[in-house]
Design a protein around this nucleic acid. Structure first.
Lengths: 198, 198
DNA sequence: CTTCAAAAGTTGAGTGGTTGCACTTTTGTA
DNA sequence: TACAAAAGTGCAACCACTCAACTTTTGAAG
């Protein structure tokens, strides 16, 4: 047994598998961008990627998933933003900064704009992406709880994690994202009563 | 034209329509409770209600919707809780009270427990119900904004509405709902920084 | 009471995503 | 070289949902 190569280099077999997966994803992206999510059938995507429909569904669990890949990275960044925040900075503030940073990223990539437009325009894709994003709630809540020194299922931590994640769509839908982020996370940090008389 | 009866008494025709609708909903509820949402097909429900599948889908837009009816009422109560809150009470506090009140309701109804269990156990139903619940965001946000005297799309109001609605699932999943409501809405009212050193 | 049009309902065929099964091909390793 | 696991294929089927064409019911105007 030669684990050495198998582990590090991923072997010809796995490479081919990834390659198949990639060509399916590529075909899907092209077609969806060109004609819209609902006007392209799985069959057509499979044909263009030169695989059978059955094979397509062995690589992806659903039509929507063709457009997104796993993102351990996003959760890691979220958790990192909380864990490695500057000394003395509050957790909501750290999350606010992270979101603002996020909103600037990828601005350059040409496909990114069209991709985002496609997702926002297609209800099925919006809800799918939102669901994926919300899966980070548990991980984020745990990070916050550890940071504060309370049990992982502390209600306030869970709530803060959920609210922070939910606020993304609120903020990204606004013209001035930076100011929106200030107001929304200000609400989480200092509360509603802070600068409201009623 | 005799509007008088048509408007108030609803006419034989509409009555029959409602009756058909009701028998479909009844059939669905019975079957779902007995064997679970995923193990009952629409065909079987239509058969038991003695209508065709096509007719079923003329009354309900989807399989999930067979279990829920329209709820203008819930939104009205939500808005009412904000609008008619005791003088001097904050909006988050009013919402907290409303949620606590909600969590006590329906405890007596025998079917209600089984129904809730079914919904919680079935992912498709959970997400459907959550989506319905979240449709009240806009109405609630508008009520809050009017109450405070700012434009209806004010970010803080939208965010507060969203967070409040989202917090329902967080709170209802806890043992001590009342305390959970205190903590979560306390976060919204007084902020994270208020009683947290970091 | 008849007539007429709208609405409810039916039937049956079809679409599109998704799964299961039985089979062949490829590929890593003993 | 041989073998077993894994990848891929083709086909049939299931299920939620839609469409088009047709029949039945029903409310109300003449």
């Amino acid at each position: 047994m030669r684990y050495d190569r198998a582990v590090t280099e991923l072997g010809r077999r796995e490479r081919k598998k990834l390659q198949t997966r990639q060509s399916i994803a590529d075909a899907a992206l092209e077609l969806f961008l060109a004609r819209g999510f609902d006007d392209v059938g799985v069959k057509e995507i499979a044909d263009r990627a030169d695989v059978s429909v059955t094979t397509l569904f062995k690589h992806f669990p659903s039509k929507e998933s063709l457009l997104f890949d796993e993102d351990e990275q996003q959760e890691a960044e979220l958790v990192g933003a909380v864990r490695n925040r500057p000394a003395g900075q509050s957790i909501p503030r750290a999350l606010r900064d992270h979101f603002v940073r996020m909103s600037y990223g990828h601005v350059d990539h040409p496909l990114f704009g069209a991709f985002n437009r496609l997702v926002q325009e297609t209800p099925a894709l919006r809800t799918y992406e939102h669901k994926m994003w919300m899966r980070h709630q548990e991980g984020l809540a745990r990070a916050i709880a550890e940071e504060v020194g309370v049990p992982a299922d502390d209600v306030r931590c869970v709530a803060l994690a959920r609210f922070a994640l939910e606020s993304r769509d609120v903020i990204f839908g606004r013209e001035d994202r930076e100011q929106a982020a200030d107001e929304v996370f200000g609400l989480l940090e200092h509360g509603w009563a802070a600068d409201q008389q009623s």
